[in-house]
């Protein structure tokens, strides 16, 4: 095991953490404020990937395509909220799970028909395909740094929005006591729509910035959705801070685990056993982390106060 490999994997894990945060932030707010179990949040991530791919191809510009995709995401999110999800707020969790499960099946199939089984992708422009050499000889692909930087920027904006503005104050208040916010004369319906739109844009943004690396395919939303569940369960439902810390933690542990568990196991067992046990253990790592944290703190690391 060498130092540069460790550092490179650290960046990969951090980048996964950033993507997870963008998805989990919206998910945790929607849970925390509307008490809505939205399985279709991963579908919004998929929306972002496909919409951006198409728009980038049409405009022939990565930046322009992605910027245009953001209002499209907002519109798609609001449309979804307005047409179906709004009727689910009053329903129990079971109805919400099933109805949004139905949405997933529908959209996965629809996207499969429209874009085909191979899906689509975004080619990076030449100015983003290089690598950056950091002090110490660590090389990181430029685009990965772009993801990390833009993700951190969005996280910062979100932090300012939630903790420094009036809307953010309402969002925080909504996460800890929904009824009270309504009783104080705030237009709860509008707040819900706003939060859902915000969540849709965040998830869509995550989907679009990851597409140049992973491609866009039907069903991509569900693998990230389940990881985002783990993240918000660890972080505490309704907590943005919790989502950020848990996302980075999950991203790092998952990536580092996959890279180094085999190496670590080789120290204590023979090659065959390590090659069998390595992938098995590393695929379970984040779930074990979740189980341990829940065993100690059943409401996650940062449960919102009053919840």
């Amino acid at each position: 095991m060498n130092y540069t490999l460790l550092a490179e994997q650290f960046f990969n894990g951090f980048q996964l953490g950033i993507i997870l945060f963008l998805v989990a932030a919206g998910l945790t707010l929607i849970f925390g404020i509307m008490d809505l179990v939205n399985l279709a949040h991963g579908t919004l991530y998929m929306f972002g990937a496909f919409f951006a791919s198409t728009l980038v191809a049409v405009t022939d510009s990565l930046v322009l395509g992605m910027i245009l995709a953001l209002p499209v995401m907002l519109a798609a999110g609001l449309l979804l909220e307005f047409s179906i999800l709004r009727t689910l707020y009053e329903r129990n969790h079971l109805d919400q799970v099933l109805a949004t499960f139905g949405l997933i099946l529908f959209f996965n199939e629809l996207f499969l028909i429209v874009w085909g089984p191979e899906g689509t992708g975004i080619n990076l422009p030449p100015y983003l395909t290089g690598t950056i050499t950091l002090p110490g000889g660590i090389t990181v692909p430029e685009y990965r740094m772009v993801i990390i930087a833009s993700g951190l920027l969005v996280a910062l904006l979100l932090y300012v929005l939630v903790s420094k503005t009036r809307v953010g104050m309402l969002i925080r208040a909504g996460a800890s006591n929904r009824e009270m916010v309504g009783a104080l004369g705030i237009n709860i319906k509008l707040l819900f729509t706003l939060v859902f739109g915000l969540g849709a844009v965040l998830a869509g943004f995550a989907g679009m910035i990851i597409t140049p690396i992973t491609q866009a395919d039907s069903g991509m939303g569900e693998s990230i959705l389940i990881l985002a569940f783990v993240v918000i369960v660890i972080g505490g439902i309704g907590s943005i801070k919790g989502a950020f810390i848990a996302a980075i933690l999950t991203g790092l542990i998952d990536t580092m685990g996959r890279s180094f568990i085999d190496v670590a196991l080789l120290q204590i067992m023979d090659t065959v056993a390590a090659e069998t046990a390595g992938p098995a253990i590393s695929s379970m790592m984040i779930y074990i982390l979740m189980a341990i944290i829940l065993a100690i703190k059943p409401s996650g690391l940062f449960p919102p106060k009053g919840a």
Binding site: F31, V230, I237, Y287, S299
Partner: peptide, 20 residues
């Protein structure tokens, strides 16, 4: 482990363990 929690947490944790 899952029954220590309730509601939404229970749904997501059972899902996560099954995925594991």
């Amino acid at each position: 482990i899952s029954l220590r929690t309730r509601g939404v947490y229970f749904i997501m944790i059972t899902l996560a363990f099954a995925q594991m």
